Amino acid sequence: MTALTITLCFTAILASSCLLGSAPERENGFVKVKKGDSLTMECTTTDTKFDNLELLARIPNKHVVMVFDKNTDSKNLGMEYSGRVTSSGTIDKLSITISNLQLNESGLYIGIYSKYDLGQQQIVKEEGCSVLLFVNDVDKTSPPEKSTGKGAFTLSEPLILIFALTACTMVIVFFLVMWVLAPKVKALCVTRADDTPREYIPVYEDMHRVRK
């Protein structure tokens, strides 16, 4: 039962990830783009007293994408993102676009607002936006695949894996059912065999009577 539970959970998680990744629009903070494409995020807050907005990328280590300063209305970009980041709007509603994304830039992107609270004498932070980004490797120089028939279609690797896991799950369920039910069916058959009344077969007269 443990193996069955793990298989079912893994199948459900993988199916959810594939559905989110295949959707043309972002859902639940998950975005899937092609290599060389752009990502646009919108960070918002209801607190207008924040002074800075810092966009960080965890891929998996932390990288500073951009730091926007409200007081000077300036932005500082990380070295690897120089010339690839643009922004528009005010700090409480800022749209940020990262262009020419690469495979090694897949990861979690988080926009953090910050301000210095004089009363508490400490820096107060708040998350303004977050996106889980996955960059696909696409060879744009190769021609698109052609269908070989009217109903021809291709399956992505995640979908093939889902079908394989589903098949494995069905096999596991079958063997579990057989393992549980087989002894009970056997015992039931033995019990019925013992309880079945035996038919009395009349015996002809004793041999000595027949001889007479």
Rank of each mutant, 00 (worst) to 15 (best):
I123E: 14
S99M: 03
T97K: 03
L159G: 02
P60W: 04
E42F: 00
K75T: 11
K146W: 04
L159Q: 15
S74Y: 03
L8N: 06
D117P: 07
T46C: 04
A182L: 08
I160Y: 10
L165D: 05
F30W: 07
P144K: 15
P24K: 09
D195F: 09
M66P: 03
I98T: 03
I162E: 07
D194G: 03
E27M: 08
L19W: 04
V210Y: 11
G83P: 01
I91M: 09
A23N: 14
E127A: 04
T72D: 13
V85L: 03
S156E: 08
V85N: 02
A193F: 12
N61Q: 11
T48Q: 12
L8M: 05
G128A: 05
K140V: 13
T166M: 13
R58N: 15
L77E: 03
Q120D: 12
K212T: 07
Y204P: 07
L4T: 01
V173T: 07
Q120A: 15
N71H: 08
Y200M: 11
T5C: 05
A152E: 15
D37Q: 12
Y109H: 01
S16A: 13
S17I: 05
D194K: 11
S88R: 08
K184Q: 14
L132I: 02
T45G: 08
S99G: 06
T5N: 06
L4E: 02
M1P: 05
K70Q: 14
G107Y: 01
I59D: 09
I59R: 12
Y200P: 06
N76A: 09
K75S: 14
T196L: 09
Y200R: 12
L165M: 15
L4G: 01
P144I: 05
R58F: 15
P158G: 01
